[in-house]
Amino acid sequence: MDDLFIANQPPIYRFLLRLSGSVETASDLSQETLARGWQKREQLRDSAALRTWLLRIAHNTFCEYARQQKQHGERGWEPLEASTLACREASPGKLSSDQELGEQIWHAMGELPPRQSQVLHLRVVEQLKTHEIADVLGINAQAVRSNLSAARKNMRERLGDSVSKPSNPKAIG
């Protein structure tokens, strides 16, 4: 179980980075998420759903954090630029052209409305199903579908020209 929790740290961190836009906040909140998950692990009935369950805790933890920040009148997170730079520090090495495009998309996702960017992240990066995304974000499946559709449309409009050839056209979803 311990190993499973640790293995799920990267998805939680990525999701929190998407939500907060700050490496420090994402790091702190991912630790807190894991701690909360560990405390409540008895509540988890299906261990196969661990990732979805932890992502939901991460989302709740972030919402709580954002609320607190709002109450204290502080700015909750750093701008996305800084976070992305920090990400690159965390994973040094030359970026391939695919990764460069990925980075560009990651940036562009930050400009989407929050809900759209969250749904797109969970669908594309974490490859969750519609009902799982609905579970994580606490919304209904129809809202997930409409947000996902809008997000994709937005992304295609913004980055349509940048994507000339897919690296692996057969892989879908």
Partner: peptide
């Protein structure tokens, strides 16, 4: 065209996102 674009974007994003790791993450 839309399918081609979207698949390309999804793959690129996934590839990039996989390189985003917590600073002190020790991979298994």
């Amino acid at each position: 065209n839309a399918v081609e674009q979207q698949v390309g974007m999804d793959n690129a994003l996934r590839t990039y996102a996989e390189t985003i790791l917590p600073r002190h993450h020790v991979p298994h």
